[in-house]
Design a protein around this nucleic acid. Structure first.
Lengths: 345, 345
DNA sequence: GATAAAATTGTGAACGTTCACATTACTGAA
DNA sequence: TTCAGTAATGTGAACGTTCACAATTTTATC
């Protein structure tokens, strides 16, 4: 790496301070049993020489690397962005750094990849919404490598995880639409290989049933959480012989697609059709009209997962913890009672 | 770190394959002068034992860490997200990983912090829009640590950098508005301690002058690139005795703030007032009406900067390269000729 | 003032690699 | 067959730490 010539090491500091290198190490790591004046002398020498610890060496020798890994499939979405923000905040106070692994890029066998991670620089791993968690989790568990899942319930009860109350959120949003008077409510699903997408669909169905509305498969369009799927899904729903008076999309981004489709059909939100999203990403408040959506506490999820992970790193034998954070319906201006509705309740 | 017991090292592989550990190292690093059958044997042993290289040891011993650092002040914005996407794509093909450093969090002296970075795991550093580049760049240069600036021109011609043609972009957008017939064009600046914000203001001014329109300081509101500043700026401009017929915001996010303010004044875009942004972040296309904006090739900037950085890492003595990528006016539906305008040109 | 106990400091090895150099094995020409 | 020259492999040290343990100093107790 040839990191310049002025690599001042623990040994340089030691001779500058007139002590052994172990003592310097003790000072760095705030170990006890160092005489105050010695500590002081070492500290002085360190600043005088501009010493800074080499994480690689430290980690190799058995310490912590002070780095945690974050495994995501795509950076750059505001969904991930919000989560990272929470992680970062929590990491900052623990003096940890963050290494980013994106899954979409590797060709290697997933489990082999995870093995690399565990040998790598990270002390622990955060996984956001992994596509095929099986491959990862098994390896991680086998290596006893600290890890926490975000926005995913994992394979079984033995996986530490932080998720949102997806089912409940979808239930409440659907209930809200029903109570506004909607009877035909379209639903755009997320990527159905993901548990959260399944949960949201379930919540939607449950609310219908609980309110005496028959579930109509015709009103459900299988999407994938991306905007185009919201667009095509809504287009299909709007062209039904009996179109819905409201559409509930499984995330905000696909709700934006729905809004686009509605506009192209020369209909207005919320006068002609109500729209609800899920996530409450920042721009949900800033589209027109502002989107009513189910708020997922993304930043907090990142925060809590990080806190859990740091605890596992400190003590790998802590019991498995699984957190489900509440979701909250954020009512904005994209919903109103359907046109045909004659009031009452 | 206690990374499980099954830490298979180069030495285990060596004895499994019946060669010395150096030979294994040679195979791993694809060095020449290894007999094909020996190589084969080592490879077999590696897979059999599930060997995976320890980056920390490799890096310590003088190799590459295969990690580059990314210094940003805030993750979670789609501006950064787009850039990261480009970086990530480029890194993937080079088998590099990405470590994220956020500046807003450290209390330590900036230059001391950078020193840490250079001793850390990264082989090089990418800096996105640093707040006070002086502190960083001096240290980096002094340490001969490979680095590339993104979206910032740096202190002098000696800093490798990738930026966008901010001045030209602002010029063209302003010109576009003028050619639509606008004479009073409001301008919301970015954070004026940043060069890109200064450049955009300059481009705006230059276009006015070139088209014989006197620059009116009353029409310029000093913002900070965030949405609220766009909102308050536009509110102020709209309440002027002679309000502008178009507002040009220095980035998309503040343009969203402008749109909000326009709506609150019960005016319509583009009928009553035209709005232009800068950046072309993904949601610019999805607000209502879709925002006309100056496209900055964010992803490409990340990509190119990364490619440059990797070259510097491979050969630190390469000459300093400075790239300015063109910007492009993306015309959507947020602009039209002003109401009062009677055609002609 | 001697002695054990406790606090402080130092020593040596280890972590898993890469690199410079030394050694051995192989090739082909005299 | 012998010798040089090259290709292939091995050896030893180094990278900068931490950790277990050994050695030393200080403190407290009688």
């Amino acid at each position: 790496m040839k990191k310049s010539s002025n690599n001042v090491t623990i040994i340089d500091v030691a001779s500058e301070a007139g002590v052994s290198y172990t003592t310097v190490s003790r000072v760095i790591n705030n170990k006890e049993n160092v005489r105050p004046e010695t500590r002081e002398r070492v500290l002085m020498a360190m600043t005088r020489l501009g010493y800074v610890v080499d994480q690689r060496a430290r980690s190799l020798a058995g310490g912590r690397s002070q780095v945690i890994g974050l495994l995501v499939h795509d950076v750059g979405t505001s969904y991930i962005g919000e989560i990272i923000r929470g992680i970062d905040a929590e990491l900052a106070s623990a003096q940890y750094d963050l290494i980013l692994y994106t899954t979409h890029r590797r060709k290697t066998k997933e489990s082999a990849y995870v093995a690399t991670l565990t040998r790598g620089l990270a002390d622990g791993l955060l996984l956001v919404l992994p596509r095929n968690p099986g491959a990862y989790l098994e390896t991680l568990r086998q290596y006893h490598f600290p890890h926490v899942l975000i926005d995913h319930r994992g394979l079984d009860e033995e996986t530490p995880a932080v998720a949102a109350a997806n089912r409940q959120g979808a239930y409440n949003a659907t209930k809200y639409l029903i109570e506004l008077g909607h009877q035909r409510i379209g639903f755009i699903t997320g990527a159905m290989d993901q548990v959260c997408a399944q949960d949201r669909l379930e919540g939607y169905k449950a609310a219908l049933v609980d309110h005496g509305i028959a579930f109509d498969p015709e009103l459900v369009y299988e999407g994938d959480f991306f905007q185009p799927s919201g667009y095509t899904g809504a287009s299909a729903l709007l062209e039904l012989p009996r179109p819905p008076s409201a559409i509930f999309a499984s995330n905000d981004v696909s709700a934006f697609g729905v809004m686009e489709a509605v506009r192209e059909h020369h209909l207005h939100i919320p006068e002609d059709i109500s729209v609800v999203g899920f996530d409450d990403i920042p721009q949900a408040a800033h589209v027109h009209p502002p989107l009513t959506t189910v708020r997922q506490p993304l930043e907090e999820m990142g925060r809590i997962a990080t806190r859990m992970l740091l605890e596992y790193i400190a003590d790998p034998h802590l019991p498995v913890e699984r957190v489900e954070l509440p979701t909250e319906l954020v009512i904005r201006q994209s919903c109103q009672p359907p046109k045909s509705w004659e009031g009452g309740g």
